[in-house]
């Protein structure tokens, strides 16, 4: 059952991801992106990361995507469609590059049986132990404020820089 659900979510995620790229209308491509994120949230549920799944839906599929939608609508985008990849040679090259990279990656992943430590790391047990001890939220919150406190605070500076930068560039009277 879990396997079936996994393949269902995975198919939706990959199919919608392709839809994001090929959709002609920006709003349509955005909707595909929401579907991708929701499907990934489903995979999180299957991994018993319920808190992560909820956050994924609330923050990504909810808040951030709505902002995207607002921007697209306010800027009134999506009327004149232009191809990103121009000319036959370029599209062949673009597809060859991405296809080649994807092929190499798939081949390497297929060989993962060569190094068993890669598949049977101790990560799963550690997550189970943390879940049992601190609960779904605590398992994320504890490392965030202990081991990862420096990156956590750094994100604050990063957001400050982004806000100040955006304000400086978008201000009306200079």
């Amino acid at each position: 059952m879990a396997d079936l659900l996994f393949f269902m979510f995975a198919t939706v995620a990959i199919g919608s991801a392709i839809g994001v790229v090929v959709a002609r209308n920006p709003v349509g491509s955005l909707m595909f992106m929401v579907a991708t994120l929701a499907a990934v949230a489903g995979i999180f549920v299957l991994l018993e990361a319920h808190f992560l799944a909820a956050i994924q839906v609330i923050v990504y599929a909810g808040a951030i995507m709505v902002l995207f939608l607002f921007v697209i609508m306010l800027l009134n985008l999506g009327h004149d469609y232009q191809r990103d990849v121009k000319g036959g040679v370029w599209s062949v090259m673009a597809f060859a590059t991405t296809g080649g990279l994807a092929g190499l990656l798939v081949r390497q992943l297929g060989r993962s049986a060569d190094s068993p430590a890669f598949l049977t790391g101790s990560g799963g047990d550690a997550i189970d132990a943390a879940l049992a001890e601190y609960g779904a939220v605590g398992a994320i919150a504890r490392p965030l404020f202990t081991d990862y406190v420096v990156p956590f605070e750094l994100v604050g500076i990063l957001l400050l820089v982004a806000i100040v930068g955006a304000t400086v560039l978008a201000k009306k009277n200079v």
Partner: peptide, 15 residues
Amino acid sequence: VIFLGLEIMSIAVYA
């Protein structure tokens, strides 16, 4: 941390 440092540096310089 390298990634976050890189982004803080870069975004400030873009602006």
